[in-house]
């Protein structure tokens, strides 16, 4: 009986992973297809990559998206770390419930609502105080920071609540000021969470179509906006080539980050165990 169930689970897992990776594999394979008909194989070719690299519109959009992504991720890590620290370490304060609600709500808010509401904010603010003058890169960046910081805050918060406060308490008992404790003790411990938070915020920004479409103005098209307008016209092989490049870069980054973080985590666990053994 147990044997049969594990066979069932194994089959389901194989099916699940095939389901997750089949479409990605098909994107990569057909990016090397000679034919314009994406799903009919007509021999190996890299001509779609050349075509892609000559496409000014795609290149401009990719550059804009990268710029927004880097600014967004950096700002989101700063704000999100503060928010996570407040939720995990500051105990009660006036308005805490509202604060924790505002931090976790963007995680589940439908994108169309977030996009529409931020656009209406920008339009109203422009009418009332003249800022922001027109919409474009700045408004997209602000919109992205707002929802990315929520993800960073949740990561930092869960990292901090899984940590023992005793190290921080010890430092304070020895007379360190709170700011110093944060910089010298807390920050190095949560560094892996900050790195994954930065990468996540960067990816979310690079990936966002809906919110950017709402808050963008004329002349500022991000990469997803360009891809969406191309895809709407039908399947085209240069999009497959673009997808392959993105998948390759992301996979390399995520695997490197994953390996480094696991290694660091292991070293830390070993150091803690060593310290505990020495105590005995």
């Amino acid at each position: 009986m147990g044997q049969r169930r594990s066979f069932f689970v194994l089959t389901a897992m194989c099916f699940g992973f095939a389901f997750l990776y089949g479409p990605i594999v098909s994107l990569i394979v057909y990016s090397f297809n000679e034919s314009r008909l994406v799903t009919v194989w007509a021999g190996f070719s890299t001509k779609w990559y050349g075509e892609l690299l000559r496409d000014e519109q795609v290149l401009d959009a990719a550059f804009l998206s990268l710029k927004i992504g880097v600014i967004n991720a950096t700002a989101a890590v700063l704000l999100g770390t503060l928010a996570g620290l407040i939720l995990a370490r500051f105990g009660r304060f006036k308005g805490r419930t509202l604060f924790s609600g505002m931090v976790s709500a963007p995680l589940v808010m439908p994108e169309v609502i977030t996009g529409l509401s931020l656009l209406l904010l920008f339009v109203s603010a422009e009418q009332l105080i003249g800022w922001p003058a027109g919409r474009g890169m700045d408004t997209i960046t602000i919109a992205h920071i707002t929802f990315s910081m929520a993800y960073v805050a949740v990561i930092v918060q869960s990292r901090l609540s899984s940590l023992d406060e005793s190290v921080e308490e010890a430092a304070m008992d020895l007379g360190a000021r709170p700011a110093k404790v944060f910089l010298v003790i807390t920050l190095p411990i949560i560094a892996p969470a900050l790195i994954s938070g930065w990468l996540l915020a960067f990816t979310l920004s690079l990936d966002d179509l809906v919110i950017a479409s709402f808050v963008s103005g004329p002349g500022a098209s991000t990469l997803p906006m360009v891809i969406f307008s191309k895809v709407r016209l039908g399947v085209s092989p240069d999009i497959n080539a673009l997808a392959t490049i993105i998948i390759l870069i992301v996979t390399v980054f995520v695997v490197i980050a994953g390996v480094l973080l696991t290694r660091q985590e292991r070293a830390r666990t070993r150091a803690v165990q060593q310290a505990l053994q020495d105590e005995d």
Binding site: P23, L27, L206, D207, P224, A243, I247
Partner: peptide, 9 residues
């Protein structure tokens, strides 16, 4: 990896 591109696949 891009959500849009995975849906496109």
């Amino acid at each position: 990896t891009s959500f849009l591109l995975r849906v496109y696949a």
